[in-house]
């Protein structure tokens, strides 16, 4: 596009309200549609959910104010504790995606023929929808048709039904969730490794650094921005886990693979009647957990803005 700064005729002398005030008005004009949408669909609903959590409401009839009763009930709800505990397991195990992603990135950070295609193929599980990833893994685990049992049979391990056993089901779903997440972390680290200062690496090599030492003292410090983003997206991803639980087990067997995100959905929109108020209370708990990370992220960003 031609730069009109040069081709435009000289502007008329500034006049009129708009001319005089445009520097002050322009940002708000540009922000208005975005803020309107965001306020109506994201910001207000957060407060509304807090409000709804104080009511008993089936989503249709009259809502009845019951104070903190929903929260009191949560404290006695075994399903809530199961979900919370599963969220903790998700969070901790999901973080394995970061070292695993780094490991694969280091493995692929070479310049042999065809390596670009390899990088793309290693990455592309991330692009597939979680629903399909969930289905693919559910079939992979399936005792009658899945490849997992014949595979571990080669090493002498007995047949397992991962998704049918309350003790293993959550780990099975987390493993499926890790697959795309590792790919994501891998691509973050590959980009980071690309930007590592080669002179520093060579200098460290001359000083005799190699292997683990080099990785720990020279490479990882330079990968900090990538690590930060990897942690943020992984934590958020772990707490958002819904699709896989829904597709692979619907929270079963016997509710043992529920997470807060799924339990909330189940309570609010189950076929046994909608319990919107109770669901909102679960959502508030999940929101408050997430808020810790959001606050941390914003704090870091704020510090950077000050510095920059």
């Amino acid at each position: 596009m031609a730069a009109p700064i040069i081709t435009e005729p000289a502007p008329p002398p500034a006049r009129g309200y708009w001319r005089r005030n445009q520097m002050r008005l322009a940002p708000w004009l540009f922000l208005a549609p975005g803020i309107l949408f965001f306020a109506v669909y994201v910001i207000l609903p957060i407060f509304q959910s807090f409000h709804i959590s104080l009511y008993r409401w089936d989503g249709l009839g009259e809502a009845r104010y019951i104070g903190l009763r929903n929260y009191e009930r949560l404290l006695e709800d075994q399903a809530f504790y199961t979900s919370l505990w599963n969220n903790v397991r998700w969070l901790v195990l999901y973080l394995l995606a970061i070292p695993a992603g780094l490991f694969i990135a280091l493995f692929l950070n070479q310049r042999v023929r065809g390596i670009r295609l390899y990088k793309s193929l290693f990455f592309f599980p991330f692009v597939i929808s979680q629903v399909v990833v969930g289905l693919v893994f559910a079939w992979f685990y399936n005792p009658s048709i899945g490849l997992l049992n014949p595979l571990i049979g080669l090493f002498g391990f007995g047949p397992v039904n991962i998704l049918g056993n309350p003790n293993t089901v959550t780990y099975g779903i987390i493993a499926a969730g890790l697959w795309p997440q590792v790919a994501y972390c891998m691509i973050l680290y590959l980009t980071g490794l690309n930007a590592v200062d080669p002179e520093q690496v060579e200098a460290a090599r001359l000083d005799g650094a190699k292997g683990w030492k080099m990785l720990w003292y020279v490479i990882l410090p330079q990968l900090r921005p990538a690590t930060f983003i990897a942690v943020v997206v992984t934590v958020i991803g772990a707490l958002r886990s819904f699709d896989m639980v829904s597709v692979m087990t619907s929270g079963g067997p016997f509710g043992s693979s529920r997470v807060l995100a799924y339990y909330m959905f189940e309570v609010s929109l189950s076929e046994y009647g909608f319990r919107m108020g109770y669901g909102a209370a679960i959502a508030v708990v999940l929101f408050l957990i997430m808020m810790v990370y959001i606050a941390f992220f914003l704090w870091r960003m704020w510090r950077e803005e000050r510095g920059g």
Partner: peptide, 13 residues
């Protein structure tokens, strides 16, 4: 911040 909130807090409203 809004971009990071869990979907469930928005679901009912």
């Amino acid at each position: 911040a809004g971009n990071f909130v869990p979907f469930q807090i928005l679901m009912v409203p």
